[in-house]
C-alpha cells in the first residue's frame, strides 16, 4: 500500500487518536532532532594528579578533579550523554603501584563512566589483580575479542551494551590488542585473543540487525594506525560494515579533529582518540534526525570540527 493513500484512509482514525494517548507526531513524520554527547578518554595511565610543574612537556596538564568538573559542566547542558574509556586505565604513576587500580576505578565510578574496554596495561596487576579491583568499578567492561572463559573474568565482562538515549538506541562493543608478546602470559593467563575485526563486525551486525540499534560505537585499544602490518583502528574501520564510530587508544594519539574512513559499504566511520593521561577530554556530539522517511532532511553528511 502506498503510504499517502494509507494516511488518507486513517485520517479519521488519527484525528481521534490525537485526542488519545498517542501524540500526533506518531502519525505525521515531523523531524525531531536529538543530540547525544559522547565524552571519552583513553590511556589514562593512573594519571590522578595533573603532571607536576617541573618544566616538562605536559606540566600542569591533566588531572582527574578538573576533568570531573568539566564533565559535570557538559552534563548540565547536554541532556543525553555517554562517558566512555578505551583502555589502559592502569599503570604509569605510583598510585597504581601502591593501590593496584582502586583509586582509578573509584574515581571513574564517581565521574559516572558508562563503560570501558581493556587495554594491555590493564593486565599489569595480573588478571587476578584486575578482578580484585572490579568491585570498585560501578561501570561495565565491554570487549568482543578476548575470550575470558578459562579465566577469573569469565562472565564478568560484556560483549556489547545498549544505551537508549532520547529515543536513539546506541550499541557499544569493544576490541583489545593482541596480548602475546606485549603482556607476559603469567599476567593474562588463559585469556584468548580473537580476531578483532571479525568479532567487532559480528557483534556490530547483531546490534544493528537483531537488536535494532540506530548507531554502533566500538571502543578500541588496537591503536590508531601503523606503518607495519599490525591491525589498527583504520583497518577496523575500512573492513567494517556496521560500526559507525571507533573510539580508540593505545597509540596515545592527539587528534585535532576526528578522522573519517570509508567502510565496506562506502559509508563513513568516524575515528577519534584523545591523546593520553587524561590531558584531553574527547567529545563528539551526534545529532540524530528522527523521521519516517528514508532520507534525512537536516543531514549534512559531514563532520563539523
Amino acid at each position: 500500500m502506498q503510504r499517502r493513500t494509507f494516511l488518507k484512509r486513517v485520517s479519521t482514525a488519527s484525528s481521534l487518536m490525537a485526542l488519545g494517548a498517542l501524540p500526533a507526531e506518531a502519525f505525521y513524520g515531523a523531524e525531531e532532532l536529538t543530540r547525544i554527547t559522547i565524552m571519552h578518554t583513553n590511556d589514562m595511565h593512573s594519571r590522578i594528579e595533573p603532571f607536576p610543574m617541573d618544566g616538562t612537556r605536559y606540566e600542569g596538564r591533566g588531572g582527574v578533579a578538573r576533568r570531573a568538573a568539566m564533565i559535570t559542566n557538559i552534563r548540565k547542558e547536554a541532556e543525553h550523554s555517554l562517558l566512555l574509556d578505551a583502555g589502559d586505565i592502569f599503570q604509569g604513576t605510583p598510585y597504581f603501584n601502591l593501590f593496584g587500580g582502586e583509586v582509578e576505578f573509584k574515581i571513574m565510578s564517581k565521574m559516572g563512566y558508562d563503560a570501558a574496554t581493556f587495554g594491555n596495561h590493564d593486565f599489569d596487576g595480573g588478571i587476578d589483580g584486575f578482578e580484585r579491583q572490579m568491585p570498585y568499578a560501578n561501570f561495565p567492561f565491554v570487549i568482543s575479542n578476548y575470550d575470558f572463559r578459562n579465566t577469573i573474568l569469565n562472565e564478568k565482562t560484556k560483549e556489547y551494551l545498549i544505551f537508549e538515549k532520547g529515543g536513539v538506541k546506541i550499541g557499544l562493543t569493544g576490541v583489545g590488542i593482541e596480548l602475546k608478546g606485549m603482556v607476559p602470559k603469567s599476567l593474562y593467563k588463559e585469556t584468548q585473543y580473537l580476531d578483532p575485526i571479525k568479532n567487532a563486525n559480528r557483534v556490530a551486525k547483531m546490534l544493528k540487525k537483531e537488536l535494532d540499534c540506530d548507531y554502533v560505537i566500538c571502543l578500541s585499544h588496537l591503536g590508531f594506525k601503523y606503518d607495519e602490518d599490525k591491525v589498527s583502528d583504520h583497518d577496523l574501520a575500512a573492513q567494517s560494515r556496521d560500526i559507525d564510530m571507533i573510539i580508540g587508544g593505545h597509540t596515545h594519539t592527539f587528534l585535532d579533529a576526528p578522522v573519517v574512513v570509508k567502510n565496506k559499504r562506502k559509508k563513513p566511520v568516524i575515528i577519534n582518540q584523545a591523546g593520553w593521561a587524561g590531558i584531553v577530554l574527547g567529545r563528539l556530539d551526534l545529532v540524530f534526525e528522527r523521521n519516517k522517511k528514508n532520507k534525512c532532511v537536516t543531514c549534512q553528511n559531514q563532520l563539523i570540527g
Binding site: 513524520g29 525531531e32 532532532l33 536529538t34 568539566m70 529515543g167 536513539v168 538506541k169 540506530d214 548507531y215 559507525d244 587528534l255 579533529a257 576526528p258 568516524i270 577519534n272 584523545a274 584531553v280 577530554l281 574527547g282 567529545r283 563528539l284 556530539d285 551526534l286 545529532v287 540524530f288 534526525e289 528522527r290 523521521n291 519516517k292 522517511k293 528514508n294 532520507k295 534525512c296 537536516t298 543531514c299 549534512q300 559531514q302 563532520l303 563539523i304 570540527g305
Partner: peptide, 13 residues
Amino acid sequence: PKQHLAKVESKSQ
C-alpha cells in the same frame, strides 16, 4: 520512525 545521523560535531577539549 528512523534515526538518521544528521551531523557530528567534534568538540574535544
